[in-house]
């Protein structure tokens, strides 16, 4: 790849819900070909960070660049795995059709999903070990299986940068291992993967890059360097109460 720019570059990103800041002045530069964990306490803005990068929530200010160019122009390089609870698993659709959704952008407006695309979707299902469930309705899959087909859908997008929102939430140990294996394969192929993660015990094992977040970026860098007790304390140990009060004051005065 000819990219020598960072895979993801964020400058001065601020996001506010109802004028109440959720992310403050986030600056971030993440190199390509890493599996990056995003960790932080509840309400730290982890999911919001991903959504703000992907333009899913409005930014109050800030610049987001993917491989040196504005995100809007690099959309086709980006893949996204939303949280599993955000969709209706009772929806009338089977695993194969769901995975094929990742190809819609390539297929284009108004064109049908042809056999060739279905084959590609099936290959992705095979890669996550779900080929035999291709024609099963999605509500009849376990939580881990659902997460795997979500991952397969991202794989067929064939992106260079992936954002995954809590892919390990509510999955069994087997699926977790399988997902990690897939993430490492993605990195070997030169892809960059961002993963919102909760379990601090596995951080060192899973990620080679780490973003520690609590409304601001507390620390970011290679996991072995930044995953220190000092940084953990700053990320998780007590919120800045005065700042909280200020945030409340801003929220309360305008909504």
């Amino acid at each position: 790849m000819q990219h020598d720019a960072p895979a993801l570059h964020i400058r001065d990103l601020t996001v506010a819900y109802h004028r109440k800041p959720v992310l403050w002045d986030v600056d971030l530069d993440v190199p390509p070909s890493v599996v990056a964990g995003i960790v932080g306490p509840n309400g730290a803005g982890k999911s919001t960070l991903i959504k703000a990068v992907l333009d899913l929530v409005p930014r109050t200010s800030g610049v987001v660049e993917v491989f040196g160019r504005p995100y809007r122009r690099q959309r086709r390089l980006v893949g996204y795995v939303p949280q599993r609870e955000t969709v209706d698993w009772d929806y009338p659709i089977n695993a194969l059709e769901l995975v094929a959704m990742g190809l819609y952008r390539i297929i284009g407006w108004c064109r049908p999903v042809t056999a060739a695309y279905r084959t590609r979707a099936l290959e992705a299902l095979e890669e996550v070990g779900m080929a035999e469930f291709a024609h099963r309705q999605i509500s009849r899959l376990s939580g881990g299986q659902q997460q795997r087909i979500f991952l397969a859908r991202a794989l067929v997008q064939d992106a260079d940068v992936y954002f995954m929102d809590e892919p390990f939430a509510g999955v069994d140990a087997g699926t977790e291992k399988a997902i990690i294996a897939i993430l490492q394969r993605l990195r070997e192929r030169g892809k960059t993967v961002f993963v919102v993660h909760h379990d601090l015990e596995t951080v060192r094992e899973y990620f080679d890059y780490l973003v520690m977040l609590n409304m601001r970026v507390v620390a970011a860098g290679p996991a072995r360097d930044v995953f220190t007790s000092e940084n953990l304390k700053r990320t998780y140990g007590g919120r800045l109460t005065l700042l909280d009060r200020a945030v409340d004051a801003i929220g309360g005065s305008s909504s």
């Binding site: 659709i93 959704m101 819609y104 064109r111």
Partner: peptide
């Protein structure tokens, strides 16, 4: 009928659709 695929995407997973640039 023409927008079958697009409506499926919209009604199933609008967040993914938006992230995918639709």
């Amino acid at each position: 009928a023409l927008l079958f695929k697009e409506f499926r995407l919209l009604t199933f997973d609008p967040a993914f659709a938006a992230g995918d640039g639709w």
